[in-house]
Write a protein that binds this DNA or RNA. Sequence first.
DNA 1: CGCGGTGTTGAGACCTGTCAAGACGTGTGG
DNA 2: CCACACGTCTTGACAGGTCTCAACACCGCG
Lengths: 239, 239
Amino acid sequence: MIEAHLKKLRIRDDVSPEEESAIRALVSEVREYRPDKVVIRRGQELNESILLLDGWMARTKDLSDGGRQISELQFSGDFTDIHAFTLKKLDHNIATITPCRVAIVPHERVRATIDRFPHLGRLYWLMTNIDAAIHREWTVSLGRRSALGRMAHLFCEIRERLQISGLVENDSYEFPLTQQELGECLGLTAVHVNRTLQELRKRKLIEVENRRARILDLPGLKFVGDFDPYYLYLEKRPR
Amino acid sequence: MIEAHLKKLRIRDDVSPEEESAIRALVSEVREYRPDKVVIRRGQELNESILLLDGWMARTKDLSDGGRQISELQFSGDFTDIHAFTLKKLDHNIATITPCRVAIVPHERVRATIDRFPHLGRLYWLMTNIDAAIHREWTVSLGRRSALGRMAHLFCEIRERLQISGLVENDSYEFPLTQQELGECLGLTAVHVNRTLQELRKRKLIEVENRRARILDLPGLKFVGDFDPYYLYLEKRPR
DNA sequence: CGCGGTGTTGAGACCTGTCAAGACGTGTGG
DNA sequence: CCACACGTCTTGACAGGTCTCAACACCGCG
């Protein structure tokens, strides 16, 4: 579903038909991965990037005490590690959460394509800048918001981002994270995630069941999470 | 001191003399700002970026409860908001910590320069990706490290980054942050910052006095902060 | 000289972590 | 088809790290 990827770009700027075919021609191969697998390891030399077609992935960092922190979630249509085009190696791992289908994009093709379409170069630069904006918002969450606020904020962010690809129906979406993984996003223990989740449900804001999140009161959830989607740059304009 | 900026680029890749003069020609004007001033406000329309020549700045985000979180520090030589070139508006404020001298860089010049030198486009893209890497590392700090570890880690990061511009002597550097501001970086209250700082000194790892940080035991500090500079991408290679 | 910002200290509250045990559910092998 | 094993979820009791509130000391600057 490279369509999801095009949608993400087109929300932020126009993409011409010629650019679209150039993007489609980036893909050299499609691969499938099992859940809970580290697909790219920190430090590994990279000459290709992966575009996530289907499933959920996460950027993860391991700690010396055996713990793990997730620094960003990735969904269908996200160009997961396009930043490797300039970085050459990553400072973090990229791991699957669910089974995933990904498109492989060799860096020479990226190079050739943005030489031919500098506008696409700026667009992909933009996309990595949006990733950075998401990182900043997580910094705020982890630094200043309570467990309840953080969690509410994350559910709002996921809803907003999945909606772009049409993966939200009636404020409800598939939610494959275990409570352990949710804790790795939020800087909380699994035990406390469990209790915070119960608190959110008790307040009739959201419930999570059978790998599905159902938002019961979106304004309420946004209020508790102090959520403002501004940082996602959902505005179309020339870049 | 645009030299500091060139140094930061040259640590990561070669910059030719022609590229260097193109970079010098980016600057349209130099401005000075007083300390503790918001220089760029979230949401403000931008058609120029600022390159920090001298002083410390911070990316800050305000919270609805009146609090503030700093998501990154910026030092001499950092191209503070080059990401605005694609974003057009920022999701955060940029504020001075100390008095600052900055170079103004109009976006048309950036556009023209990277059209002429695509390599510089990739280099600036790289620099924003390194900012994102720093954000990720802060996410890990805030999510998983104790107050003591977080603080130790931050002092190591600052040392590493200042060293590039030659602003570190004998593991000692100017440190203008108030304890309040330090807390805004670390997600701690000023009171707890004070106590944590005392603990670091008690352990003979670092002491802060008269706006100056003096590292007493660098290996010890790195150990407590679980610090590994890998995420700063201090390696020269073609990008 | 006085004032405001900054740093320091203490006591107590609260949020989140730790440890431990058990329930639930699902897939696997016998 | 059952039994079991393993991961996940849930709950309780308690510990501990960090926050809150309050008071005071210090210091540079107007």
